[in-house]
Design a protein around this nucleic acid. Sequence first.
DNA 1: ATGTTC
Length: 477
Amino acid sequence: MNLPLERVDTWRWRIPKHGDMLTGGLVFASEALMARIQHDRALEQVRNVACLPGIVGNSLGMPDLHWGYGFPIGGVAGFDPDEGVISPGGVGYDINCGVRLLRSHLDADRVVKRMPKLVDALYEAVPCGVGAARGDLRLDNEALDRCLVGGARWAVENGLGEPEDVEHTEENGCLDGADTSEVTPRAHGRGQKQLGTLGSGNHFLEVDRVAEVFDPALGEALGLHVGQVAVLIHSGSRGLGHQVCTDFLPVMKQAAKGHGIRLPDPQLACAPFRSEEGQRYFGAMRAAVNYAFANRQVIAHKTREAFRAVFGEGVKLEQVYDVCHNIAKVERHVVDGTEREVVVHRKGATRAFPPGHPLTPEAYREVGQPVMVPGDMGRYSFVLVGTEGARAETLGSSCHGAGRLQSRTKARQATRDRNIPKELASRGIEVRAASRRTIDEEYPEAYKDVADVVDVVVGAGIARVVARLEPLGVVKG
DNA sequence: ATGTTC
């Protein structure tokens, strides 16, 4: 492939504007990670995104960049609300997939002894795996629509959490402007029985030990200290969000044609943000975003119930933060010296707002917005905070995870004669899963070392590292 | 990611 790529410095690479590109590409990676990135066609996708009308700033790639549907995963792109577009491919099928972090007052030494019992309780409490699972919450369409409009706030108002949870969630767990009339009956049907379920693939519910705090002041601000037990929840909008994406791809394909948008790749189907089709997708997408916020809220509630059943009623799990990594929304950013509204698409990328930002919760105003970056189920995950560098360079964004090293097929082959749950148990990690196949596909060596990804965002100054978490117990689909 | 090929 003849794609020009220039090394800017230790952490940055530029795809100079050429051909139909309206702007340049900027990718954050070490030399080693860039070699991995070049195994697939993600850089071409960064270039293709730079050809879409109304793009503002660079077409951005995070160090966990890899090939996705139309837009790359690990991609960030902002568009002018008046001249630019909105695209389902820039969000992904799992609308508002994201990560929530809870902190406990429990010491890991105490929890480890009862980990099999705790993981059993969590597995029982939070349905997982593909499909309807055993979701005990059933919503009629009226209740579902209130959930789609109210997000995590709706869940808390219905007794499924604490007001502080909402305060410590991106966008307070609810985007205004959800349009339930654009969520099809089929999407409604899928959403009715999946609230509070984990899903499959890389989704998980994990009990962690805070293994390392890199900066005492940052750790203090986020309430994290070495030896403490924390919980990571990674899930999204389940079948409902998937159906919204599926339903709108043909709509957006027609819209692109109707509005005369030339697409370098048909998978970049999009519509002008202000167009009827663009606003219909945006309304449906925001409903799916709110469903995902509510889903993680219900999972957190069930997690608390499971902890209390095992460790007593006095156990508290306080929410550190909930951040999404598949979303499009309107944010204010300074571009070329002027503050303006931008339609930011983050697909496999997280918001990472700096200290002092008005949308960062009060508790973190001095240190920056927390960012959770999951690794794999055998090694570790990281907690970061956003920086001024992110505001200046990446529309306030950072990375979202490790990224795969092996395909699912290859991982399955490589683990055929191994017993991954047993191997993990021997290393002190209790795993429960709906499917043995999922565990094999998700085994640790299938993923890159997330520390390498974090090194890049920290080195480039688009995040600061707060803490490293090590898994003690894992629930998987 | 996904009632994993409506």
